[in-house]
Design a protein around this nucleic acid. Structure first.
Lengths: 137, 137
DNA sequence: CTTGACGTTTACGTTAACGTAAACTTTTGC
DNA sequence: GCAAAAGTTTACGTTAACGTAAACGTCAAG
């Protein structure tokens, strides 16, 4: 089961270690995300069978991690993609959390730009030091 | 000691709770950062006295947190601001880690833009649902 | 037919980043 | 001058996010 494709015409499936390899994580982590209700792969007997939608969800989880989100926060975001969300109040609260997330992302953008500028300076100082260092030889 | 300024002409100082209030964290957290070697405020007797440089360091720590960095990663970045870094090898390794950090920040930028786009879509779907919902009344 | 690669569940261990509490001293407002 | 507020150290508790290990099933290859 090196490649998960059953037929080129149908949707591909993946084993747990396929996904683990692709994203450089452990199978333990993937099962952990399932325990947390963030993944619910199909089963062939006992064995987990992942479909493209599961793979996308996993990608979203990992993107969240790269952004420093907790699994719970990622779960919240992923649930935003869901079909319908019942009543008006629920939708309002969803809108709220969307806007809150956006605000936090804006903050992160500022932080990243600031930090990048400082990395530039630090790099410049390094190069400076390297050149003066070579003069001492 | 409501305001930390001893004299307007000299550099201001801050108590631990001044900083805790300003950044909405606990004094426990601040002492914890000190335990980790990330802060080393002056002392007046037993009492910690923070100077502007300490405050800046704290800001850098918190910015790191917003970006999902571990305290260790933040410490590494903060140390990049230090005066001289000895020999050429050290500087080379510093340059390496600067470039690695930059790459990770670029990743984060991509992730943020992607996520923001998806938040836009999610918001649109919400508003859509709200309008169709109101028709059902 | 057994070995090895892959899968499963269950459960205890670990690390980071603090929270919480106790027990005590020091400073400050009135 | 004394209670309340703020400071200190020491130490155990907690949560998230897995790691690690045990103990077992399954199936294709040699």
């Amino acid at each position: 089961m090196a490649e998960g494709a059953t037929a080129v015409t149908s949707k591909p499936t993946y084993s747990i270690s396929d996904l683990a390899r692709e994203f450089s994580i452990t199978t333990r982590a993937i099962r952990f995300y399932e325990d947390k209700g963030m993944l619910s792969p199909a089963r062939r007997g006992q064995t987990r069978v992942y479909r493209p939608e599961d793979r996308v969800r996993l990608k979203l989880i990992l993107r969240g991690k790269r952004l420093g989100l907790s699994l719970e926060e990622s779960a919240e975001i992923i649930n935003m993609y869901d079909p319908a969300h019942g009543n008006v109040e629920q939708i309002q609260r969803l809108l709220d959390s969307i806007r809150t997330k956006r605000a936090r992302l804006q903050e992160q953008l500022q932080d990243i730009h600031a930090l990048m500028a400082e990395l530039d300076e630090a790099e410049a100082r390094c190069l400076e030091n390297l050149s003066t260092e070579s003069l001492n030889k």
